[in-house]
Amino acid sequence: MNIDRYPEIRPGKKVFKKAYAFVVLLVVGRGIEAADRVDGEVKDIVRGLPEGFTFSLGVAPSGPWMVIRKEKSGKLRYLGWRRFGKTIELDMAIRNIEAAFRIFTFRESTAQAHNNGRFSVNGNLPNALAIMRIMDIAEIYLLPKIIATLAVKRYPDRRELPPGRKHFNRLRIYLRAFSPGLFRVVYRNL
């Protein structure tokens, strides 16, 4: 048999989808950092995380990623997309880029994606649950209601999150997320 008739295949890359995922992770990373400075519930959750706690969220096996750490000040800080040289205590990875694209285009909510086994989690489960709750809150602030309802299990009603507070906090989070700090972190990661 001539085995050369059946060549070995090295599959390619999905450049556009990876680029899109990269941007979403950047925005979500900065959004989480900002939400920790604005929202009371996020602050409470972060208080329960150990100091120096570092987690990454990204797409397995080859990224993109985002890395966030709880600083000595007790605040979360988005460290960028490079994982090298950082001790990751909680590694949350979406199992493939196609699933990541579904999640990041809100065709599958974070909770449904978790239930569908799209995430592989390596680390302490309570911390992973805490991070998922923070991500939900960040999504509620970052996204318009029509999209956020697709991303989270329960979009808070007026009693749970009064509109005034929601819009004020949203504005603060956007301002913080896209403040000059963004350019600093991008520069540091280049």
Partner: peptide
């Protein structure tokens, strides 16, 4: 298999 790190 794109971006999977696997070879066929």
């Amino acid at each position: 298999f794109y971006d999977s790190g696997c070879i066929i």
